[in-house]
């Protein structure tokens, strides 16, 4: 329970709060700060965010659980998201997903035992003209062949 935001994060949160007429409106932005600060959002982090924004922990938990893109505790260092929606399905995203599952030895939705990779199938990433599409944390890769996927994974520090 000794969790606290760093000085720098607190300054950033103050700047965020100045942009909205209510503290609650800063919930998603502050969860993003927390994501960066703590590497994922577990219950202690949600309590901290609630305290910071004068909300109840239940309110923050309710918001957090609604959104799929915030980092869950237990996710790997790299989150690999393959778009599985229609346009990409038409252009072979399945092949890319199968390849990643085989290479990493996990199924979609799982994390490698060394906590390096989490593989997720996700909905349309708004790059449907360049499928298959793979998002690795914040970076978007398009027209991803299995060979290109291998090169991307090998280039990660």
């Amino acid at each position: 329970m000794s969790l606290a935001f760093s000085e720098r994060a607190r300054a950033e949160i103050d700047r965020l709060l100045a942009r909205y007429p209510t503290r609650g409106a800063a919930t998603l932005p502050v969860l993003r700060v927390a994501e960066r600060e703590f590497g994922g959002i577990d219950d202690d982090v949600m309590v901290l965010v609630a305290d910071t924004l004068d909300l109840s922990p239940a309110q923050v938990r309710g918001v957090f659980s609604f959104y799929t893109h915030l980092r869950r505790p237990g996710w790997g260092k790299y989150v690999l998201q393959v778009c599985a929606t229609l346009s990409c399905a038409l252009r072979g995203c399945e092949g890319l997903a199968d390849h990643l599952e085989a290479r990493l030895g996990i199924r979609a939705g799982q994390t490698t035992p060394d906590r390096r990779f989490t593989l997720l199938k996700v909905e349309c990433l708004a790059r449907c003209g360049e499928s298959p599409v793979l998002q690795v944390n914040d970076d978007m890769y398009v027209n991803v062949t299995p060979a290109k996927a291998d090169a991307i994974l090998e280039s990660l520090p």
Partner: peptide, 10 residues
Amino acid sequence: VTVHRGAGAY
């Protein structure tokens, strides 16, 4: 102007 990021919900 403020940029407000969503968090994954169609």
